[in-house]
Design a binder for these strands. Structure first.
Lengths: 205, 205
DNA sequence: CAAGAGTTTGACCAAATGGTCAGGATCACG
DNA sequence: CGTGATCCTGACCATTTGGTCAAACTCTTG
């Protein structure tokens, strides 16, 4: 059965309901910790009906991950060679932070996958992701060489941006536990802090 | 059966073999992704024998987590009120980075637990961890007020240090995939980068 | 070395879980 | 409105897995 492009109205509705439900459950319990019954219930379908739309549990997981990859890379892709370097990078940081706030499930799904060795997306990491990062690292390097940015290792700069921002999604429980935060207000403080951090470190002296 | 303090020689040997094996497997596959058989095989014991030493799979997991918590907090505890503020914080960053390099399994076990909502250590987060962080945040705040440190949000500073350093353990696969790194040489670059980042951002102008 | 404490295991069990399938219900469309 | 395609489900299956237990083995110690 060809599942790449849902054809009928019902197919569209159900596949998206399944993926939505699966994102919820997978991001909370990981791949092995998730059961088909959980997904089925969350999607409001029967288990055999799930398997009518997706060949297997793994197929659902894979569909989510591949769909996610592009979304995840997009903000980095927007780094503009023409813009003001420091502003561009700070804007990237804030974009990433917004994603952590608005799409925490996606971030955690990704984190779960990577922490456990990225068995399903290692190719994409070593391929498209690596290429994009190297490309942007070159851009950052050129900004440094023309004196528009303080000197830092571009790759590790990117890693630090990923980690600091995604941390607010992936370690959400820990952060809320420490701040006693029940809403998203602390994201404002985080934005403030990260802007300051990177602006100070990257503005050429 | 009282398992808090192994009594016999054999008990000491086997419980530590089990915990060592379990750390390996749990950190790689998460709680649900790990089977008792895997742990048993890695420890060189039979499955019933595992359960002679630990009441259940969860008991092994809990033993690991509680044992880990203290180790994880130790570096933060060492922040010295008497030292030079910027140096103290940079030293803390480097200590944390070394831990990510030398104890990646512990870091991933922790990450797995937190990402999935910290079902087993939420109390410790909201208790001892929270207290320690607040204590050190106060210290940092006092450094800022006396002009020895540039002004930043102390809590988010700590979060950023956790995330940037642990990232090298938790997202190891991704980092290696991008850097094409097969050894630990990139930890040197990371140390360099992070020292620079925090030194620039925290040194009072 | 006797004997009890401590250790180990093969065989077994119940529950959970991913997946199958035949047949029935429903929908789209000529 | 009829009919073929699409959609849905109850019942079922095989496997995996956490955990039990009685019996056997081994170690320690008086």
């Amino acid at each position: 059965m060809n599942m790449t492009r849902p054809k009928t109205r019902i197919q569209r509705k159900n596949t998206s309901a399944i993926l939505e439900a699966a994102l919820d459950v997978f991001s909370q319990h990981g791949f092995r910790g998730t059961t088909l019954d959980q997904i089925a219930q969350a999607a409001g379908l029967s288990k055999p009906n799930l398997l009518y739309y997706f060949a297997s549990k793994e197929a659902i997981h894979t569909a989510l991950l591949t769909g996610l990859m592009e979304t995840w890379l997009a903000p980095l892709r927007e780094l503009d060679p023409e813009g003001n370097p420091v502003d561009e990078i700070v804007a990237y940081v804030l974009r990433k932070l917004e994603m952590a706030r608005d799409y925490p499930r996606e971030s955690r799904l990704f984190a779960n996958e990577i922490v456990q060795g990225a068995p399903n997306i290692l190719d994409q990491i070593r391929g498209p992701l690596r290429d994009l990062v190297n490309d942007k690292a070159d851009l950052i390097e050129s900004w440094i060489l023309t004196g528009k940015l303080a000197s830092v290792d571009p790759h590790h700069l990117i890693f630090s941006i990923w980690s600091t921002t995604q941390h607010y999604a992936d370690f959400d429980v820990q952060i809320r536990g420490i701040l006693k935060a029940s809403d998203d207000a602390h994201f404002e403080d985080a934005a403030q802090f990260l802007s300051t951090l990177y602006r100070r470190a990257l503005t050429p002296s």
